[in-house]
Design a protein around this nucleic acid. Structure first.
Lengths: 211, 211
DNA sequence: TTTGAATCGACCAGGTTGGTCTAATACTTG
DNA sequence: CAAGTATTAGACCAACCTGGTCGATTCAAA
């Protein structure tokens, strides 16, 4: 990236980033076409190479940007003093939706990195990516109160079941509102529905006594 | 498709189909390259167009083939007299794995059709695709004994939670054994693990009295 | 009026595309 | 063995797309 890009108005930066994130996320690095990106971003082809010296340069910039965003605006904000696993996930989902709404392609883009070929990345990006993953793990599992769970179920397995359930719910929501901006959707009934699911999970996996 | 293709030895047919299914599933119709397909199938470029008159012809053939396979070897074999939802899903998973093992790309390929542009398909394929979806629904939900479920949870929601859990488990398995043929994997401990998960679901979502 | 940063899109060489065709080989039948 | 047919690989084609360049133009500041 050059200082040319960073001195753009933030809206324009955001528009270009979103376009690029979208195309990279959907097509993967190799197949992502810079033509498609500039079209989506509504800028001329020349400008992209004026801001970034190559396609790969743009790609690395997006990685760095996404790592930062997910760390600072999402993971770091997860409150690990909440020791109730389900409550923590509940709050985590709210956060995720918030970030997702402003930056819909970052999560998919970061997801694709998991299968990407890191070997050519600069060292500092590899480190930060590894750091992100361990941070994510810690933010989910550190300081969880195991005693809330029924003692006749394997807590580890219950963790998984709860997580899969939440991911499944997220997926169905994505499918349901595929073509709408999230801001245009009234989320309150969805959160209610989500909470009903969480309530079921609670009554199912937590022991009766535990409130 | 021409009779040229169907009179090939079945192994060769299968190899070509698998190659094509794989590429179409991974890249989508437009981007799937016939060059990649013939390379993957280990045949010369000419042969593909000797067997199928065009890329689109091959594509339609694969749709028909996959619809048939999933109907006959998978859905139709699901036993709807089993009214215990979890047991039925358990059996369904076994079937799915069986089919998956012999034909790993059919499910993903069929999955991509959901987002594909049906509008140009011949009428009979549209109908059969619609039929497949209603069949799938029926095979999952018809004749389920609701009384097994705890009466303090919404059965519909419990359905979803259970399904998401199973899908989640399937996904983690796919990731775990991404690069191995399924036949090379010793499945028995996995089935045991799976059954432990099912057991938890049972104790969680079914009422105590219901066995 | 002059400068130079910002912008666009025509353009380039190289590569890939779906599809054709030739020429060689393999197989069958006399 | 010979003749003919079925099968095969891959060189080849025009059309198109690729990442990247560059000259032409605009326009605000000096």
């Amino acid at each position: 990236m050059s200082e040319k890009f960073s001195s753009l108005e933030v809206e324009k930066q955001q528009k270009i980033r979103n376009a690029a994130l979208k195309v990279f996320a959907e097509e993967g690095y190799e197949k992502a076409s810079t033509n498609k990106i500039v079209k989506e971003a509504g800028i001329g082809k020349g400008m992209l190479f004026y801001y970034f010296k190559s396609k790969y340069d743009l790609y690395l910039y997006l990685i760095e940007y996404s790592l930062d965003l997910i760390s600072n605006n999402y993971l770091e904000r997860i409150d690990t003093t909440e020791s109730d696993f389900i409550k923590r996930l509940h709050y985590t989902s709210k956060l995720k939706m918030e970030v997702f709404d402003e930056n819909p392609y970052v999560f998919t883009f970061i997801g694709t990195l998991f299968l990407a070929d890191e070997s050519q990345w600069p060292e500092y990006l590899k480190e930060r990516y590894a750091h992100l993953r361990s941070l994510a793990h810690a933010k989910l599992y550190d300081n969880i109160d195991y005693s809330l769970f029924r003692d006749d179920v394997d807590v580890e397995k219950a963790f998984h079941l709860i997580q899969w359930s939440i991911e499944g719910y997220e997926e169905t929501l994505k499918k349901r509102f595929k073509n709408q901006r999230l801001t245009e959707v009234d989320m309150t009934p969805l959160w209610d529905e989500f909470e009903e699911y969480l309530h079921i999970l609670k009554t199912s996996f937590y022991s009766r006594e535990a409130k």
